[in-house]
Amino acid sequence: MSQPTNFYLAVPELIPEHVKFLEISPIVLETTDHLLAFPLTLPDRTFHQTLQSLLDRLNTSHRGFSKADNVYKGTKGNEDNDQAFNIVRSTDNLSLLILSSALEAFNFIFKEAMQGGTTLDQTQWGRLIYALHALLKLFKSEQSHTHNPPLVSPPALENTQRDALQRWTKGHYVFMVFCQGLILAIKSFRNEVSANNTGSARYYLNIATSIMWGVESSFRFTGDYTYSEYEKSVRPTLTPPIAPEDMSGLHWRDHEQLVKQLINTKKIFNQLPSDLHDSRESFYEAMSASYDAHKFVCTQFVGDESPSLLMQSRNQVSAADTLTNFKKSRLNTVHTKSTMS
């Protein structure tokens, strides 16, 4: 059996307060230009081949990423989650690292989707690909983005064998990449609102909306297999001795930082000028749909009444109710009752 491959991610706490503070490497700009110029509606195999060739170029343009010093360690729970998913944190060349992580994660899911197919429809698959498109635009200086994902046919089925554990693992990689893109977009949005730059603020919030819809589709892809496959391949990895003792969905470091940024932006979200209200509504809708997708996948495997497998020894609140409560709390950072009109 081959050894699991490490997946390198940035330390989310080190993501800068604005895109303009992110040093963009020349090869990052070149790679981004290639992918952004690529028609999203071309056949999936052609898109994947282009992505693979660009990823190969990135991998040969540098000597690899190094593991971050101990000073950048997260909590014990953060470390346990990273260990379980073979995630290695790095502080090297942030723009190159974010781009490489994104392309690597999408390379993984394209391979799995082309081998086993997917139940995602044209809208959901289009949102997933368009979210990568939106994330890449963070590396560009242009200020135009509309959340208008195309309908994209998902990969054609090659066989009926789906690797549940691969989808579970690689789907989480995509989620972490999206969290980092959201952190950068929301921080940039917050700074542009504070500087009274309405046009730029709208741009970054629209980027965040597209990425958030990608989160919704990534959740669905992560659980895109049968209950029997979950029981056989995924469930055993979620409990000791395979899973570290502090592993929990509540300990994803990138998501923790995203929630922190949403809380830090709450006052700005709820005092936006009127010409940003439509963009806020779109982001709110995308976030709401993301929580619904997470709940859908969760109840598919643990039911409506049971706590999640990782939390059942800590509390008996059902996974569905926990996610509903999280949804209300997180949506409140974008809208409070006084602003929901």
Rank of each mutant, 00 (worst) to 15 (best):
S101F: 07
G77T: 03
T91V: 05
G74L: 04
L55M: 04
I129L: 15
G64E: 02
F139S: 10
D121R: 09
W125T: 10
D80W: 12
N107W: 01
L42N: 11
I98H: 09
E79R: 15
H133D: 15
F65Q: 08
N81C: 06
G117I: 01
T118H: 09
S90Q: 03
F65K: 05
T75A: 08
K140M: 14
A105Q: 02
L42Q: 13
T119K: 13
Q49V: 04
N93D: 15
T50R: 09
N70A: 12
F139D: 10
S95Y: 03
R57H: 12
F108T: 00
I87E: 00
I109C: 06
D80I: 07
R63K: 11
A113D: 06
L42S: 13
N86S: 07
A134E: 14
K73Q: 14
S66F: 00
G74F: 04
L120I: 08
G126Y: 10
T50I: 09
K76G: 00
F106N: 11
N93A: 12
D69E: 13
L51A: 03
R57P: 05
L97K: 03
L55R: 08
S53L: 13
K76S: 10
S141C: 02
S61H: 12
I109D: 04
R89C: 00
T75V: 01
K67A: 14
S61G: 15
N107C: 00
I87N: 01
L58F: 07
T118R: 11
Y130A: 09
T60C: 04
D121N: 15
Q143L: 15
G77F: 08
L136C: 07
L54E: 15
R63V: 00
A105P: 05
Q124S: 12
T123I: 14
D80S: 04
T123H: 10
S141N: 13
T50A: 11
H48A: 14
M114P: 01
L103T: 02
L94H: 08
T118S: 15
L96Q: 14
N78P: 03
A102I: 11
E104I: 01
T75C: 02
L138W: 10
Q122R: 14
I129G: 02
L58M: 12
L94S: 03
G126P: 10
G74Q: 04
I98W: 05
K140R: 15
L99M: 05
T91C: 03
D121Q: 05
Q122A: 15
Q143M: 14
F139I: 04
H48K: 09
K111D: 13
D80V: 06
H62M: 07
I98D: 02
A131T: 07
T60R: 11
D56M: 11
D82M: 00
T123L: 09
T46A: 14
A102F: 04
S101C: 05
L42R: 09
N78D: 15
E104R: 11
S141P: 02
K76P: 00
S100C: 11
N81D: 01
E79Q: 15
E79C: 08
H62L: 06
E79A: 14
L132K: 12
T75Q: 04
D121W: 11
L54A: 09
R127G: 08
